[in-house]
């Protein structure tokens, strides 16, 4: 993956608009957050292979933080994206990593189901 290039990501988001696509969306602070800090709270959510269609996908930046929103018949969004990649299976992978390279958030878009 490489650091976000707004223009390039926007072009890629446009390419997946207005057709059925599969989504992977997740966020996590890890299964050990509370183990290492009793004041912490483990949180996470993930959805894999939800089939959706979005009419508009937009990447936005403010204060160095990137957000991606997909307008469907509802909304999908992810905050804290730092890196992206168009992989060999034509899947748009976007993820946010912390300073140690750990994944904190991911939003991925594909025309074919993600591998299970």
């Amino acid at each position: 993956m490489k650091a976000i290039d707004m223009e390039n990501v926007q072009t890629l988001l446009d390419q997946f608009a207005n057709e059925p696509v599969y989504i992977h969306l997740e966020t996590t602070n890890g299964a050990y957050a509370k183990h290492f800090d009793s004041n912490a709270h483990n949180v996470g959510a993930y959805i894999r292979n939800a089939e959706i269609t979005y009419e508009r996908g937009t990447i936005v930046e403010s204060d160095g933080t990137y957000r991606v929103g997909l307008k469907t018949n509802g909304w999908i969004y992810a905050e804290g994206i730092t890196d992206y990649e168009m992989n060999e299976n034509d899947q748009l992978l976007m993820a946010g990593h912390d300073g140690e390279g750990r994944l904190m958030v991911a939003l991925e878009i594909s025309r074919t189901p993600f591998k299970m």
Partner: peptide
Amino acid sequence: MGTPFFANRE
């Protein structure tokens, strides 16, 4: 994902 990261979710 490795330090520095070399893997991705897929």
